[in-house]
Design a protein around this nucleic acid. Structure first.
Lengths: 140, 140
DNA sequence: TTACTTGCAAATCGTTTGCGATATA
DNA sequence: TATATCGCAAACGATTTGCAAGTAA
């Protein structure tokens, strides 16, 4: 058993959590920094990172690490899939249930002990699709 | 149409490509650097990065960007899923066919134009499983 | 001969960390 | 009061880039 820490609900931590719960836009640490800073101009980016990490370890929020992109944070802590716009990097939840069928199928054919899985869809969001019809990268 | 470049097959580029084709271990740029350096001690890491990017753009190789991990490179350029060991970061191909059923299912319920998807499994490789039975992170 | 490519070193950028000061429980 | 947390600034690590010299075609 790891030694327990006495966590404190500081004004900073509270504010970060509230900002995150206000949105479903999966903001980055820097975006959260920008929003919290409006209430609390002296907060530092390091504090934002530290708190996001603590909240994530507590299971209060979820850290989303997308391949080749910044870390994103989500007030919804349960696993779900995402769609990322390859043009503007917007991130939304994918309308698809998380299924353990994929894990089961892989587990049947590997010596790894499968613990988790993530699915990322890439595409063009409606806005970018409109802005540049037909023009999109053919490799990512 | 972008202006075409006349690519040259330099000794460095050749050697990087050969090293990558020798292995199925999905090495990082730094690991490839280490291997190529044995034949070519004066090659620089920047050259390795530049060539990997060029080869990837040409479709000769594939860049694998795993969430929260280094870039990896693969001589096999076609899409496939991966399993990553959460303990030692080893990366292997997942024994599961790539299916567009996932993309179709999402496409039916989103305004995004889905272009691609990736699936990452996380688990413990056989070696790490043996080394630390029962002991694994419960969050990643 | 042209201009793509190299080696080197410095720059970038997201993120982490050391520190002395502050504030929560 | 004890110590978790803060703000600040410096450190970090992977990757990228500017530049003058080298080399493939």
């Amino acid at each position: 058993m790891p030694k327990e820490r006495n966590l404190r609900m500081t004004r900073q931590r509270q504010s970060i959590l509230e900002e995150l719960r206000k949105t479903d836009a999966h903001p980055s640490a820097d975006e959260i920094f920008g929003r919290v800073r409006q209430q609390m101009p002296r907060i530092s980016l390091g504090t934002v990172y530290r708190n996001l990490e603590i909240l994530s370890a507590q299971g209060e929020i979820q850290t989303i690490e997308m391949a080749g992109s910044l870390k994103r944070f989500d007030a919804i802590a349960t696993n779900h899939y995402h769609i990322r716009c390859v043009n503007c990097d917007r991130l939304v939840d994918a309308p698809l249930e998380v299924s353990n069928a994929l894990e089961n199928a892989v587990q049947a054919h590997t010596d790894f002990q499968i613990l988790d899985h993530k699915v990322e869809f890439e595409g063009l969001c409606p806005e970018c699709r409109r802005a540049k019809p037909g023009a999109y990268p053919d490799s990512v």
